[in-house]
Simulated assay, not measured.
Amino acid sequence: MNPRPADLEIASTLWDYLRLEQPVKPADWILVFGGHDLGVARRAAELYHDGVAKRVLVSGGALNVPDGSNATTEAEAIAEVLIDSGIPEHGLAIERLASNTSENFWLSAELLRDLGEDPQAFLVVQKPYAERRTLATARRRWPNKDVRLTSEHVSFADYLAGPIPTQRILSMLAGEVIRLENYAHSGLIEIDEPVPIEHVQAARHLRDAGFDRRAETATPVAVLSLNSRSSM
């Protein structure tokens, strides 16, 4: 399906809303959350080499291994890029089971405890459009930690011109906004203000136009992830 100009205009508005563009500050650990987009690996490598943190934890299971990678998990695919960039293996910790953002936080906390680490400040590297929901998840999962978000520096136009299909990108944007509203209402996440109704309507427009691959409601798995597991 080829999006209409009006669809792209709506998607651009959602892109701007979902990104936070927080200033980067030094952290104890860089956390890289997995998925289909290896832009998180490039951004994490840049931050590491800039001296933002000395340790990197990569979290992600087998659900959305990036296209073209021979790795069996998202985390391993990202770790390969980080190592190729010059990050030493002893500077990496790898969590290979998480299947959603709540599990990224929970299982990362478990791994850090196993390593005898109790860091207080984190810089999480996410996909650009997942920043807002990830920070809202952090408020719920790690309320006593200093968590900031960052992502690859890329414009919406350049992201569309990249390797990820446009239909998938628009579906992800619609799904992010719909999830943000649904998860906030269910208590899965803690947002600082309600999702503006115009953005919810825009996301539903994209979903109803056929960009619905990710535009579903909260799942029982996500609810279970929150209710059955401890915070850090």
Rank of each mutant, 00 (worst) to 15 (best):
Y129K: 03
L63C: 01
G35R: 09
N70V: 08
V223R: 08
G39T: 13
G39C: 09
W15I: 04
S69A: 08
A203S: 07
A130H: 10
A136R: 02
T13M: 14
G60T: 01
K127H: 10
G187T: 05
L160P: 13
M1T: 13
D192W: 05
R140Y: 04
S99E: 00
A6M: 11
L47Q: 05
R139M: 02
A222Y: 01
D50V: 05
S155F: 07
F105G: 01
L38K: 11
A62R: 09
N100F: 04
I83Y: 01
A93E: 05
M172L: 15
E193M: 02
A98F: 02
I164V: 15
S102L: 07
E181S: 12
L20A: 13
E110L: 08
E117H: 09
A6I: 14
W142T: 02
S151C: 11
I83V: 09
H185I: 08
A11E: 13
A6V: 13
M172Y: 10
P220N: 07
G86Y: 00
L135M: 05
L206M: 14
I191G: 01
S225N: 02
E46H: 14
S228F: 04
V40H: 11
L188Q: 08
Q201V: 07
G68D: 06
R133W: 04
K25R: 14
R113Y: 05
A93R: 05
L92T: 11
P163H: 15
M232W: 14
A45P: 04
G60D: 08
G60N: 09
E198P: 03
